[in-house]
């Protein structure tokens, strides 16, 4: 009785708060997607929310006659390669630090995590000089190489690896499995949810990245979405901007992230399941 009396209003309140936050979060996106269907006049008129006559041509124009799809493809490519390698390098480093015994492993890990505290902007100039000496400026190789390791990822994966009972590592060693096999056949299946969470976060970060890519790439055909969108934005000059088309471009740019999130939302942050294969 008491439970019902108190928990129902509380539940309703929680729901109301969540719905309100949801609306606030979603509104700009909905508005953006709808604006892309409006005419120039409708768009600048605040009294119009839904377009009278959906202007699908705005989307068609972006898809068929602008470099936006190319930028999206560029970004997806760079992000995918970067994230794949970040997971790989993170897994190797974290495996060694968590499971293997060697001198200075704590020191090494502390140094790696310490790098997390260095602000990204402070690394721009040294990294730029390095890349230029290696002749990797204005190339995807340079862009990817400069992001091969994600310390955030190392941190996340370490949390997951530390949940794995050390006996599993011992059992694999008794079974004669090498480190490579132990990592991918025994540890990885257990920590997969964290890999997926990390992949999603890293992909979004990479995809949205603006500053560093725009510093090291110059050629317009190498532009990533955020730079590309900016080019597109300023193309028509301050007054000539066709805002509806810009909105269509922006909407399309978010599409890959949206699709990816939908595909893996179930596994996202699932954490390590209750079952780790051992008792007690």
């Amino acid at each position: 009785m008491r439970r019902n009396l108190y928990s129902r209003p509380l539940f309703a309140l929680k729901l109301a708060v969540l719905v309100a936050i949801g609306i606030v979060m979603a509104f700009p996106f909905v508005w953006m997607a709808l604006s892309a269907l409006k005419t120039k006049q409708e768009l600048l008129d605040f009294s119009v929310f839904f377009p009278k006559d959906a202007q699908w041509g705005n989307y068609a124009e972006v898809l068929l006659r602008s470099p936006i799809p190319r930028y999206i493809a560029n970004s997806v490519f760079v992000a995918a390669v970067t994230v794949a390698y970040q997971m790989f390098s993170g897994a190797l480093l974290v495996y060694a630090v968590v499971f293997m015994e060697f001198r200075f492993r704590r020191v090494i890990f502390a140094v790696v995590l310490g790098c997390y505290m260095v602000p990204g902007a402070a690394t721009y100039i040294p990294s730029y000089i390095l890349l230029s000496k290696m002749g990797l400026l204005d190339s995807y190789t340079g862009l990817i190489v400069s992001n091969l390791v994600s310390i955030f990822g190392v941190f996340l994966l370490r949390q997951a690896f530390m949940q794995v009972p050390p006996e599993l590592y011992d059992a694999a060693r008794m079974d004669g499995a090498g480190h490579w096999k132990t990592l991918w056949r025994v540890i990885f299946p257990l920590t997969r949810p964290m890999f997926i969470s990390f992949a999603l976060i890293a992909f979004i970060t990479c995809y949205n990245n603006y500053m560093w890519p725009s510093l090291i790439t110059n050629s317009p055909e190498l532009s990533l979405v955020s730079q590309g969108l900016r080019h597109f934005f300023i193309e028509g000059g301050a007054y000539g901007t066709n805002w509806a088309v810009v909105m269509a471009a922006s909407t399309l740019v978010t599409a890959p992230l949206l699709i990816m999130s939908l595909l893996i939302q179930k596994r996202f942050i699932a954490g390590i399941g209750a079952d780790t294969g051992v008792k007690g």
């Binding site: 059992a171 079974d175 257990l190």
Partner: peptide, 16 residues
């Protein structure tokens, strides 16, 4: 793995 030894762990340590 090379010692010709097998082991049963207290918490079994089966690969989940």
């Amino acid at each position: 793995g090379e010692r010709g030894v097998a082991m049963v762990f207290q918490n079994y340590a089966l690969y989940p």
